[in-house]
Each structure stands twice: as structure tokens, then as C-alpha cells.
Amino acid sequence: MIAVELRKLVTRPRTWITIALIDALPTLVAVLLALTDIGPRPGTGPAFLSAVLSDGTLFPLAALAMVLPLFLPVAVALTAGDAIAGEAQSGTLRYLLVRPVGRARLLLAKLVSVVAFVLIAVVVVAVTAYVVGALLLGDAPLSSSVSGTALTQQELAWRTALALGYAVLAMLGVASIALFFSTVTDSPQGAAMGALAVLIASTLLLTLDASQALQPYLPTRYWLAFVDLFRDPILWRDVLRGVVQQVLYVVVFLGAAWANFSTRDITS
């Protein structure tokens, strides 16, 4: 079943259009930066964007910082929201289930296919950004950390890998929420909107001092903590919290999705 879902993922044109769209933004930014050589004013742009003018090897991170707050979660919410609800809406869900495909198996296969989507999207963005950064942007001999210390190529590579892994995990949290909504409704758009509503509410509450007690539980709270991986020494505090939090989100929402889906009447 997992193979079937992966095949569906890669044969669907929408997958590649979405990834191309996600990828287009950082590429466009790189071209603009290379042409104008104007970086963002301090405190205004996404992380690392000012640094890439002199050091293009940081561009995968700048690209990640650009797509992580909005593009990537929207794409993931749409894909994961479509997982069950999309099959329900097109009517194919009932035929898969009477095939028979066990409900837990189907959910698992859908999860794996969403994970694959997240991985493909993140890797494509990172690789494109690396190539674009190397071709168009600054070629400083040595990269520096956010704290101003020098980073060897090797250090930069594994910190970047950690950051990408962290982003994937953050998106898995989104995917679990969307997957849960996808088992609740028969409308893929509704499921995606539900997940996005959670994320938007979370982002909004994060700006509110009154919600401080709530903030450690908000799903977007630690998303941008991957920047902390590039401080020297690395600030693990928020990264670790982010990891634990996203794992909890994945466990709770997947559990809820499974509990709901395995006992639900399929009337679509």
C-alpha cells in the first residue's frame, strides 16, 4: 500500500507544481539579490538573508527561512489535508477500503507519502538554493556562524543537515494536524483550512503577551529555532523543546486521526 501511495504522489502533477512553486520564491530572491546587491535592513528580512550576499553557501538556510513560515506549511497542509478527505471526496476511499486495505494501513501509507512529500520539498529547496547560491551569490572563503565565529565547511554541512531535519520534523507536526482534520471531514480544502487555521491562530497568539502561558504549546512556537543551530556555541534549548513538542504533536494528532478514522462510518 505504501508503494501505491508513493506512486500516486509522484504521478500526480500537483505534487511537482507545488514543489516548483515553493522553489520559485527563494530562486527569485537569489536572482534579485545577485542583480541588485541590496540586502534586507537588519531586523526586517528572514534569517541569513543579509549574510548570503557575502556567503552564498548559507543560501539553503536563507531559503529555508523564507519558505518555512508560510509556503512550506501551506503546501504540507494541502497535501496532508488531501490524504483521506481527497480520497473521500473523489469516492475512491470506499473502493480502497473494500479492496480491502486496512484503515490503519491506509493511514500509515498516507503518512509515509506525506513524509516523502515533505522530504522531497525540503531537499529540492535546499539543493536548488545551494546551486543558486554557489552560482549567483557571494563566495566567501569561510562561513561564519551567527555569533561571528568561523565555521568549517564540515561544520556548516552538518549544521545545515540538522536544520533541514528540524524543518522536516516541524512540517510533520503540520502534516499530523492536517491528517487528523482529513479524517474528520470529507473536504480536502476544509481539512487544509483547518490545519492552517491552527497555524495562523498559533502565529497570532505568539505575538500576544497575554498568551504567554500558552506559548510553549503552540505548534509554531519553535519553528524558527533552527537559527539557534548556527549560533556558537549552539543554543539547544529551543531546538530540543521544538523537537519534543513536534513529536508530541505528531503522536497526539496521529493517535487522534487513527482513533477517529478506524471507528468512522465511511459515507462518502
Binding site: 537588519p42 531586523g43 528580512g45 528572514p46 534569517a47 541569513f48 538573508l49 543579509s50 527561512a65 551567527v146 555569533s147 561571528g148 524558527l224 537559527v227 539557534d228 549560533r231 543554543l235
Partner: peptide
């Protein structure tokens, strides 16, 4: 003392 901002720091 590092003063942390979302996208950088002032040390």
C-alpha cells in the same frame, strides 16, 4: 552577552 533576535544576534 548575546542578545538573541529571531534572525540573528547582537553580542
Amino acid at each position: 552577552v548575546d542578545s538573541l533576535t529571531p534572525a540573528g544576534e547582537r553580542d
